[in-house]
C-alpha cells in the first residue's frame, strides 16, 4: 500500500501536469475586455491538483496517511483474480456490444458471470440471461431509445423484433 500510494500520487501529478499543458492551448491569463481566458479555469485547477499531490507526497513521507502506514499489498491474490475475472468480464461485455448487440452481450455476460463466476445452476443462469434482455427490450420500446444492434449479421433478427415493439 505504501509504494502504491506514492505511485498513485505520481500518476495523478503527471495527469495534473498534462492537464495544465493542455489548458495552455487557450489563454490562461486575463484578456482586457473579455475577462479570464478559456484556459484560466482548468489551468489553475490543474495547478491546485499538482499542489495537492505534493501535499499527499509529504503525508506519505511522514507516514501520516493510513495507506502509507500499511504493509498490505495494493491487491492480494484474491484482488487480482477478482479484477481479472470481474473487471475483465465487464470490459468484454462492453467490447461485445458493437459486435453482437446490447442484448446479445448482456446474455453472454450473464451466462459468464452467473454460471462461471457464481456457479449457479443452468436453470437460474438461463432464466436470468434470457429473461433480462427480454425485459430490457420492452424497456427500449417504451423509452424509444434504440440500443446498439451490433454488426450487420444481427439485422434480420432485429427487423423482426422491431416489428413487434414499434
Amino acid at each position: 500500500m505504501r509504494l502504491g500510494e506514492i505511485i498513485t500520487a505520481a500518476i495523478l501529478a503527471l495527469l495534473a501536469i498534462y492537464l495544465m499543458w493542455k489548458s495552455t492551448s487557450l489563454e490562461i491569463g486575463y484578456i482586457r475586455g473579455e475577462g479570464p481566458g478559456g484556459g484560466f479555469w482548468p489551468f489553475w485547477l490543474s495547478f491546485i491538483m499538482l499542489l495537492s499531490t505534493g501535499w499527499i507526497a509529504v503525508n506519505w513521507w511522514r507516514g501520516t496517511s493510513p495507506p502509507s502506514q500499511s504493509d498490505e499489498p495494493v491487491l492480494d491474490a484474491y484482488g487480482w483474480k477478482m479484477l481479472v475475472f470481474v473487471g475483465g468480464g465487464i470490459a468484454a461485455f462492453v467490447a461485445l456490444i458493437p459486435i453482437i448487440s446490447m442484448y446479445g452481450a448482456i446474455c453472454l455476460f450473464l451466462i459468464y458471470y452467473l454460471k462461471f463466476l457464481g456457479r449457479h445452476s443452468w436453470f437460474v443462469t438461463l432464466a436470468l440471461s434470457i429473461g433480462l434482455p427480454i425485459v430490457f427490450f420492452f424497456f427500449e420500446g417504451a423509452m424509444r431509445i434504440t440500443m446498439p444492434t451490433g454488426m450487420s449479421f444481427t439485422e434480420p433478427v432485429f427487423n423482426l423484433l422491431y416489428d413487434i415493439i414499434y
Partner: peptide, 10 residues
C-alpha cells in the same frame, strides 16, 4: 451476491 452484482453491472 453473484446474482445481484451482474444485474447492477448490466
Amino acid at each position: 451476491f453473484t446474482i445481484l452484482a451482474p444485474l447492477i453491472f448490466v
